[in-house]
């Protein structure tokens, strides 16, 4: 190899723009938020902040609003992730078979994923409207009791979950279809020849071979659900009576409505630990998968 010296130096030059952006707006701030979390931070005048050690964390961990928000987040994660995974897998498997119009169905299922959450959540606020909404109209026609949906403490979260599933399911379906098409048809054929019915074929061939994809979808959607914000902002504003105040929404309230920067930073650090842990798990699993091959 010639001109090695020059190439070396130019490599660092090529990395500089991206590295600078990450340094100033991602890595630096990540440490900065850790630093802020140890202070009673003065939002208007940073110089007047006072060091309080771990007090923001102990306050948070002993406050009911933190644990309540965590429970709400868990409710949302359970409502979106396992349910979404199950539905996405079924839809993906149905779409693996060739039939006329398959491409159109796939496109229809995927299309909500590209829409802006602000815009389409407005459509669903209207659908959920207790007096004039479509959903209560359908319930009425079916002689079922009408619900308060986003205006009721009990039904607000199911409403947001329903919207989120509609919005994001298509992405999971596409990932599952990619995973399914990577499984060799020969293997399934062999299972069939050995006398396995469709059910046995699924449990003994498709499901085990699909594990890496399933784990990927599981972790990606969990991270996404933990970070979900916009639909809560437009559809419920965390209400009624904090019935939909997730940890991410609480973080927004603390930081930008109440200007309690220190506690909000501590909450951000805790959220980061949870999400980073899940991401690390995902990377580890992805790596193990490549070793197997």
């Amino acid at each position: 190899m010639f001109a090695t010296e020059r190439r070396r130096r130019s490599a660092y030059l090529y990395l500089t723009p991206a590295a600078l952006v990450f340094l100033v707006f991602t890595l630096g701030p990540a440490f900065f938020v850790l630093y802020i979390s140890l202070f009673n931070w003065n939002f208007l005048n940073s110089a007047q902040s006072t060091f309080v050690g771990l007090q923001n964390y102990t306050n948070l961990l002993t406050s009911s609003s933190f644990w309540h928000s965590l429970a709400i987040s868990l409710y949302f994660v359970i409502g979106t992730v396992p349910v979404g995974l199950f539905l996405a897998l079924i839809i993906a498997m149905a779409l693996m078979n060739q039939f006329a119009g398959r491409g159109f169905v796939r496109l229809a299922v995927f299309s909500p994923y590209v829409t802006p959450v602000v815009a389409t959540s407005i459509v669903w606020i209207w659908i959920f409207n207790p007096q004039f909404g479509l959903l209560n109209g359908l319930l009425h026609m079916a002689h079922l009791p009408e619900l308060g949906w986003l205006e009721s403490q009990r039904w607000a979260m199911p409403g947001v979950i329903l919207y989120t599933l509609w919005h994001s399911l298509g992405f999971d379906v596409i990932i599952f279809m990619a995973g399914l098409s990577a499984i060799s048809a020969d293997l399934r054929e062999a299972a069939r020849i050995d006398g396995a019915n469709r059910w046995q074929e699924f449990w003994s061939v498709t499901w085990p071979l699909l594990t890496p994809t399933t784990l990927f979808v599981l972790i990606i959607t969990t991270i996404g659900s933990l970070q979900a914000f916009t639909q809560f902002f437009t559809m419920t504003s965390g209400g009624p009576l904090s019935a939909t105040t997730t940890t991410s929404y609480l973080l927004y309230e603390l930081a930008f409505l109440f200007y309690r920067t220190g506690p909000a930073a501590a909450l951000a650090v805790l959220l980061f630990i949870i999400i980073a842990g899940l991401t690390a798990l995902q990377m580890l699993l992805a790596q193990r998968r490549t070793y197997y091959q």
């Binding site: 938020v33 970070q227 999400i275 980073a276 991401t279």
Partner: peptide, 20 residues
């Protein structure tokens, strides 16, 4: 290091980036 940047979510960066 670059890949690790994915682990830091936007929600966490809102406060420090606002100040920056």
């Amino acid at each position: 290091g670059f890949i690790a940047m994915m682990m830091i979510p936007q929600t966490v960066l809102l406060i420090p980036d606002y100040l920056v």
